[in-house]
Structures are given as C-alpha cells and as structure tokens.
Design a protein around this nucleic acid. Structure first.
Lengths: 254, 254
DNA sequence: GACTTGCATTGAGATAGATCAATTTCCCAA
DNA sequence: TTGGGAAATTGATCTATCTCAATGCAAGTC
C-alpha cells in the first residue's frame, strides 16, 4: 500500500515484475479508480465472475509498459509512481505528451481502437493494476454505471492535456519550468509537505520543448535564489510562495 | 447541407442566429456525430419523445458560443465551420487550446461537471446543433449504446489535444506554422483540393505560442518560395509536397 | 580504489524569435 | 469610389534561448 522503497524494487527487478493478484475489495485508492462507481455487491460479483484475473505489477524507472501501436489487451490503473506517455518526433526525439500519477488510468484507447496511442514508460518505481480488456467489456455490458466513471477518466485525461497545452503556451522557459515544478509538487503529494522529487533534466526538457541546459540554468537560478534547496536524489525542498510569485511575476519585468 | 455562403450568413446576422429545428433523421453528417450509433428506430423514438428540442444555430466569426465557467445546459455538435476553444492567460491573452471542425462535439464536460471548461468562439461562419443536457441524460439512460459514441468523442478530443501538444513541441516556428497549415488543409476539406483558408495571424500565433510577426514572416517566406499562393480572403493555394518536405526537412539543415 | 558511463552544470558565442516602430494592404461601409 | 480602421507586412534592434564544448559529479563495475 505504501510506495515501494529501493529494496522492494530491487526485488521486483530480480523476480519477474509480477506482484500478485489484485483484490479490488481491499484497494486503498478504490474511490479514485475505474471501479469507483460500483457497489460492493457489484464488485463482488465481478471479481467472482471474471475468468481473466486482474493482476498487479511493479516496474523500475525506465521500463516500457506498452508501446505505441502495441496490442496488449488491457488497460491499466496506476497504483503508485509516475508514468510518462510519450511519442517520438521525426528524428526519434522523445516527446512527453502526458504524465500520469496514482489513480490515473492509461491505455483506455484500447477500448475503442486496435492499439495504444502512446508509449508508456515508468518515470519512477511504479505499481500498476492490469485490467484485461475482456473484463472491461464484460463490465461495460453488465454494469452501464461503469460508463460514467470511464467518461470521467477520459475527461480527466483531457483536462490534463489542456493544462499541458497551457503550460507549453505559458511563455518563457522560466515560467514553464516553474509551472512544471508546481504541478509536480501538487500531484506528487510526497509524504513531506514542501518537497518535490523532480524529473530528470532530459524529461523536463522533453516535456516543455526546451533544452536540457536551459532547464538546468533555471533550476540553478532558483537554487541561488533559495526557492529550491537540493536534498539529494532529485529531491528538493521548495518555497511555495516564492514559486507562485515567480511564476506569475514573469512577463514584462523591467 | 452545404457550407453557408456569405449571403446566408448575412441573413443569420440580421435575424436572430436561430436557424431552425434540427431533423436528425435528415442529418448529412449523422455518421460523424453523437447519434451515429443509434438505429433509425431509436432515433425516431428519441425525436418523438423529447420535450426539449434540438435546434440549429448559425453564428458569424467572433461570436462567443459559450463562456468558460458558463452554464448553458447543452452540448453542441458542429455542423459547419470552425470553432476555437480558448482560455485566457494571467495577462488576459487568449490561448487557443483546440480547434473544432465539422462533426466534432463541444461542451461534453457539461455531462460531468457544472460548467464549461473553455470559452468557445466561432472562427468562421459556424452552424451548430444545440443538444440540451436533458436530452443527453434521457438518452444515456435509455440507450446505453450511446455511451460508446460518447467515449469516441472524448477520445477524439484527446487525440486532437495530443496532436496539438506534438505541434507545440515540434521545434521551430517554421515547423509549427507549416504543421498547422497542413492540419488545416487536412481537416477543412475545402471544396477545391489544394486550397486552405488560413486563420488570422493572431489566431495562428495564439495557437502556436509565437508572435504575429513571426507567423507573418514564415508565411511571407513560403509565398516567396511558391509553396503558398494568395488567392484573397485568407484563402491560399498550396503545394502539398513542398509543405511536407519543408515540415520534415527542418532541424539540422547545414 | 580506479574506470566507466551517464547526467548535470557552466561558459561563451551564435541565432531564432521577440520587440518596437513604421508602413502598406485589405476589407468594408458610407 | 472613397475613406477609415484593423490586420498584415517589413525592417531594425535586442535578447532569451539554443548550440557547442568543456568540466564536474555520482553511481555502478571490475
């Protein structure tokens, strides 16, 4: 239930990534995920009736969960960690389309089309539930109520995409980096308040459409200004107010 | 059924924007829109049973169809024209989040939330069908089949958002402008092949996150290179091959 | 502990694009 | 047809960001 620490992940890497059968009845984030609209009874009958199991998997950073164009017959719910959905530009450069966090779904497009639309890659240690398409189809047929939740997940993706677009349109590199940090701080809900685990420079760069060096310079500057303080392993302490100020103060500073 | 010409739009402006009751049975783009999954019988029973009518409206460019945060109780289907969904930055600058074309739906977020997420503004003369929420709700209850189409529309929005993100990450201003033109050429399906009606400079700029001047310069250059030829009223003739070449040739030309 | 290997950092110079400031063109209404 | 206003165009700077290149640092390996 708690985020996997380094040791457990090591373990996951040595063993296959499989963690175990999911027991949705016990799910700690049930209210956030695909089955949130179902009653306990519904849940019960589903879990009894299905013949393909819902399994949990763990992956270390960098693992590809599925490929654009690939055809694993499942959708996924993220239990923990961070996943990037990417596409590749003409020169093979990776472009991050979306970042998914705990409670988000991915691969929903498989409900409608024949393959995945992005490549999904773990950014941190990740735990996911793999829900076979057959289960989803069965559910859709049996419990139309599920549709609403499904639509909510589509719409959540869309809102996030919209935010990303706003981010990309938000002017200077400074602004974009700061807004990205604020977003990470918001969604990551690290144990300790006031701390963020940043992405790698390359990842931030390919999410914001800027160079690694520019990102690095912005962060160096924020450190100089005491807005960020490095704690080790990409973990930073941040001054929320200062961040807010800098993010909006931009644009026409004489 | 055909795109509104200048005269009809004139008429629309003088009269109220209302065009008339929609007869979905006769809809020329039925296969693209929200009701595409319903059988003729279903359609029949819906149209008979509803008490709030589905109406058609026409609007000239610049008209606001709904406001972010607004609460008109309806979703819309675009019959003709082009609509921009925008949000405003901290300094009130308009940022275009999405461009919608014939067959697209807008305002679907009202099915889930209390208000619209964007401001919708006509870019060209537009014809829309206004579908009251009550109708949608009734339909969802009666015809679960509709859910699939609905999901398809959500996913279509999302794919478009993803394309926009790729566009914004696609490097130089040149690239972005060219890719935008290619996109417009693709979706606008103007009568004559090989012609596009471009957006205003300001619109392209606020869609791509660049300045008006930069856009203008790119287009001037494309004209010089005979890739575009101006025909009047923002209509251009274009050389598709050349466009493709320029779009990809970018990035590292010595 | 020394060696790799992969990132992050920093500097210096090059440049795409922004900004500022005129014009010019287009469109429409009188 | 003319006139006015908005939008597009063009030129001349200026600057934020990219590029290229060198260096530093940390983690894992032998």
């Amino acid at each position: 239930m708690s985020p996997p620490n380094k040791a457990t992940v090591k373990a996951l890497c040595n063993h296959p990534e499989w963690i175990g059968r999911a027991d949705c009845r016990q799910c700690g984030i049930l209210q956030q995920v695909l089955f949130s609209d179902l009653s306990a009874d519904d849940l019960e009958s589903i879990l009894d009736g299905i013949f393909e199991p819902i399994d949990q998997y763990g992956y270390p950073p960098g693992t590809v969960l599925y490929h654009e164009g690939g055809q694993d017959n499942a959708v996924f719910t993220i239990r923990d960690g961070l996943v990037k959905l990417v596409r590749y530009g003409p020169d093979g450069d990776e472009r991050i389309i979306r970042l998914l966090k705990r409670g988000d779904s991915m691969g929903l497009e498989r409900l409608l089309g024949d393959s995945y639309e992005h490549t999904a890659i773990a950014v941190r240690n990740v735990k996911v539930c793999r829900i076979p398409l057959t289960v989803m189809q069965r559910l859709n047929a049996d419990k139309p109520r599920l549709y609403r939740t499904l639509m909510e997940h589509w719409s959540a993706c869309l809102f996030q995409a919209d935010d990303h677009i706003m981010l990309l349109l938000s002017g200077t590199v400074r602004n974009r980096v700061i807004n990205l940090i604020r977003w990470l701080a918001k969604v990551e809900a690290t144990e300790e308040k006031g701390r963020v685990e940043l992405l790698s420079g390359k990842e931030m760069a390919s999410m914001l459409g800027v160079t690694i060096e520019s990102v690095s310079r912005v962060i160096a500057d924020l450190k100089r200004k005491k807005v960020l303080r490095y704690l080790g392993s990409s973990l930073y302490e941040y001054d929320a107010n200062a961040l807010d100020t800098y993010a909006t103060a931009e644009r026409k500073a004489p």
